[in-house]
């Protein structure tokens, strides 16, 4: 954790909660195989908040942590396949917004729409299933399970989703190869470099072919060259699969891999439409 980023704590906590939520959901769905989340349609009924047709939309989100206001009327629209960068100073609410969008935490007010569904209207198990089936996550670090090999880490979300051991392993290997890190497949996360570890994390986020990848400072712990390489691979793979990406970064050169930037300041979003 860099002392520069006070949100590292929240990210680590949410990574843990995402992981435990994912396993809880897998336990829940184990009794009802084949009832995975339905893929959302893109067209919705016309609505006044302008979220119609969006893959993901946050409307006027507010969130406080005790006396600290983290979000103060933040809105965001992400279309299918779009890569959106959330930029802004440390502590401005970027991670909180990302966590709300992904249904990891609930806002105090406002609503998050995923296609035609409202996240607040879903059960916790439903949101977990969504995170496991349709979302992928990449954090700054600390997201890989240290006891598992890199290949097992990438196969994990597939196994949790009910894919057989052999098929999961093959898909994991193929995804690692696509990101140029098949040589670390048998190693544990503690035995690989930071850049390799992040590529494994990207492979794990991509392997389930999600509709949205949430990436919170994915290059924050890497040097320039490794950071660029991770961004190039992540955005190239996302574009090929038409996967949307919500990317949190304070680094403009990282944000330049996106289609569009949104600035978060004091918990409010400000679009920079040129």
């Amino acid at each position: 954790m860099t002392p520069r980023d006070p949100s590292a704590r929240a990210v680590a906590a949410s990574a843990a909660s995402a992981a435990s939520a994912a396993s809880a959901a897998s336990a829940a769905s184990a009794g009802a195989p084949g009832t995975g989340p339905a893929r959302v349609g893109l067209a919705g009924p016309a609505d006044p908040s302008g979220t119609s047709g969006a893959l993901l939309a946050a409307v006027e989100l507010r969130k406080r942590f005790g006396a600290t206001p983290a979000l103060d009327g933040a809105s965001l629209r992400v279309d299918a396949g779009e890569i959106v960068a959330l930029m802004g100073p440390s502590g401005s609410g970027k991670s909180t917004l990302l966590h709300c969008l992904a249904g990891i935490i609930g806002p105090d007010a406002g609503e998050v729409h995923y296609g035609t569904r409202r996240l607040s209207a879903m059960s916790e198990a439903g949101r977990s299933a969504l995170r496991r089936g349709e979302f992928g996550f990449v954090f700054q670090f600390g997201q890989l399970v240290p006891e598992l090999t890199c290949a097992e880490n990438v196969a994990l979300p597939l196994r949790l989703g009910g894919v057989g051991r052999r098929a999961a392993r093959e898909r994991a290997r193929a995804q690692l190869a696509r990101l140029g890190v098949d040589d670390v497949a048998g190693k544990r996360p503690g035995e690989v470099s930071g850049g390799q570890g992040q590529r494994v994390a990207v492979a794990r986020a991509l392997v389930t072919e999600p509709r949205v990848i949430f990436a919170d400072e994915p290059t924050g712990a890497l040097d320039s060259l490794n950071g660029e390489e991770v961004m190039r691979l992540l955005t190239q793979a996302a574009r090929e699969a038409a996967t949307a990406v919500v990317l949190v970064t304070h680094d403009a050169r990282v944000a330049a891999y996106s289609d569009r930037e949104v600035v978060v300041r004091d918990g409010r979003t400000r679009s920079l439409a040129g």
Binding site: R232, Q236, A252, R253, A255, A256, Y257, S258, D259, E261, V263, R270, L272, A273, G274
Partner: peptide, 20 residues
């Protein structure tokens, strides 16, 4: 400032695309 930032980011996106 925000308009200037948008202009810069647009230039950076174009360069990044050319680079990749």
């Amino acid at each position: 400032l925000d308009r200037q930032r948008a202009e810069h980011l647009t230039a950076m996106r174009t360069l990044t695309r050319r680079k990749t």
